[in-house]
């Protein structure tokens, strides 16, 4: 079972730590041998077993992993049985006064579900395709109008919305910025580069323009507009990314990477808070070293 020394070490170290500290907590009377106390010990043991994976794969981790998968499957089955099959199918059909006409809405999906299970019978597995085609077709039919609303209109209109509140001064600054960008592009082209990255002049002037716009209050709107357009250019697949398209798409990559960086930091913070939660459990509920 334990093929490598790392696996053996991880098993003994983590099991030893868990047993020693748990016995100490029980002996000190911090944890009682009640259902709650056993719950804390089980939680701490499984947490340590899963953390042991950080050192190496080992039998403790395998136990926790298999337990996790098994419990999840059993929980899922119980959930589906009580909340879907019993509540939405068996009870309404057999223990209610609903008419046949009202029950059609239950019978048709049930038949489709049974056809889906036909996959396990090779002779009738083709019947499951009826259900698959329904699922995929229904999914597409529902999602296409919703996509247009949520992924298109909900994105395009807010991109334009900041421009709705611009006054005369803002408009002047934006037009000036557009003219400056055009000048930057033309000058850098004459210098042999492009608006993008081969010339220092274009990016520098672009940055100055953005800074001016930002401090003058139209930065958000113009930045969003340029960012959206540049990122859309990056996602052109039927055009070679060279020349002006290449330069704009590289600006798009900058925008994407800045956004991903921000998202990365934000998500890491969330993960750290999860780790803090686990540490609070281990040091507080289990070891009673933290007073929360």
């Amino acid at each position: 079972m334990m093929h490598n020394p790392g696996s053996r070490t991880a098993t003994f170290v983590f099991a030893g730590i868990f047993l020693a500290l748990s016995i100490w907590q029980l002996a000190a009377g911090h944890i009682a041998l009640t259902v709650d106390g056993l719950g804390v010990l089980t939680g701490a043991g499984l947490t340590l077993a899963l953390f042991s994976f950080l050192y190496d794969d080992n039998p403790l981790f395998k136990i926790a992993e298999h337990l996790y998968v098994g419990v999840a499957a059993a929980y899922g089955l119980a959930l589906v049985w009580f909340q879907v099959i019993l509540a939405d199918l068996v009870n309404p059909i057999f223990f209610s006064t609903a008419t046949i006409r009202q029950l059609w809405v239950l019978i048709v999906p049930s038949v489709l579900g049974i056809l889906l299970i036909m996959r396990i019978v090779p002779k009738f597995s083709w019947l499951s395709r009826i259900s698959f085609s329904y699922v995929v077709g229904f999914g597409a039919g529902i999602s296409i109008p919703a996509y247009i609303a949520s992924q298109l209109l909900e994105q395009v209109h807010p991109t334009l919305a900041p421009a709705l509140g611009w006054d005369g001064g803002d408009k002047f600054i934006l037009i000036a910025a557009i003219v400056l960008i055009a000048v930057a592009y033309l000058v850098s082209r004459r210098g042999g580069g492009d608006l993008g990255m081969n010339s220092w002049f274009g990016p520098t002037l672009l940055s100055v323009v953005f800074l001016i716009c930002y401090f003058q209050g139209v930065g958000a709107a113009s930045l969003v507009l340029v960012g959206v357009a540049a990122v859309l250019f990056y996602f052109f697949f039927s055009v070679e990314h060279t020349g002006a398209v290449g330069a704009i798409s590289r600006v798009g990559i900058w925008f994407l990477m800045i956004a991903f960086g921000a998202s990365f930091g934000f998500t890491v913070m969330a993960r750290i808070s999860l780790l803090i939660g686990r540490m609070q459990f281990l040091l507080g509920d289990w070891l009673h070293l933290l007073k929360i």
């Binding site: 994976f53 794969d57 999840a72 499957a73």
Partner: peptide, 18 residues
Amino acid sequence: VADRQFSYAAAVDGMMMR
């Protein structure tokens, strides 16, 4: 593998390591 998010992750990670 599993229909729960982290049990899926634990199982796939375990298989990868082995």
